[in-house]
Amino acid sequence: MEMIDDAVINIENLVKKFGKFTAVNNISFKVRKGEVFGFLGANGAGKTTAIRMICGLLEPTSGDIQVSGISVKKSPEKVKQKIGYMSQKFSLYTDLSPERNMDFFGDIYGVAKDEIKKKKSFLAQQLDVPSLKSIKTADLPMGFKQRLGLACALLHDPDIIFLDEPTSGVDPLGRREFWEEIYRLSGMDKTIMVTTHFMDEAEYCDTIAIMNFGRVIDIASPDSIKKKYSSANLNDAFIRAIEMDRKKMEDN
C-alpha cells in the first residue's frame, strides 16, 4: 500500500466478532485529510459495524483505529468530539424550529453560545433566508432540511463528518448544491465519509471502498473501479464487484 502521511483515519487490522459471526474481518485502510471517502457495501456487509467502531461506539474485538492520531480503543470519548454525523432521514427534531435544533445539538456537544450564534447566521446567509426562528423544521423544503442537518453535524467543528445517504430523496439540483458545500468543506481539510446505496452519490467521492462479507474487496477512485469491472456506471461496477467476490468465495 502507498504511504499516506496525512492520514486522518488509520484503520489497522480491525476485527469485530459477535459470538461465532465475524462482522468485520481484518480490514485496514487509511483516509486522507480532506478526502471525500465513500464506504459502500451490500446490506449486511459489515459497513455499519465498522463505522460504529470508527466512531467509538463499539469496541473492536482486535485491531485499532487512529482518528486524528487518537486511538479509538484507548480514548473513545475523545474521538467522538472529532466526529460529526449526519443522516438525511432521522437526525432533526421536526417539530422544533431550525434555530432550536441548532441550540439543542450545540448544547449536546458543549459548543459556546456565541459560536452557535455565528453558525446560525452563517446558515441563514447560505440558505438566503432572513430567519431560522419562526418555522417548523418539518415544513422546510427537503434541501433546506438537509443543509440544516449538515450545519448541526458541524457545530462542534469536527475533523471528520459521516454522511449517511445524505441526498437520497433530494431533488437533483438540491443534491448538487449539497455536494458543492461538501467540496467546500473538503477544501477546508474536513474529511468526509459517505455511506450510501445511491451510486450517484458515490460518484462524487475521491475514493470508494467496497465491503463484502466483512472484508474490503476494493479501494480506489470511482473511475478506476468502473474501469476495473469494465462498467459504464458505478452501479453495474458495484454489482459485478460483489458478484465476482461471491463467486471467488464459493470456488474456495
Binding site: G41, A42, N43, E165, S168, G169, H197, M199, F238, I239
Partner: peptide, 10 residues
C-alpha cells in the same frame, strides 16, 4: 427500493 443495496435492488 429506497435504502436497499444495488444488488438487492437488481
Amino acid at each position: 427500493t429506497t435504502g436497499v443495496d444495488p444488488l438487492s435492488r437488481q
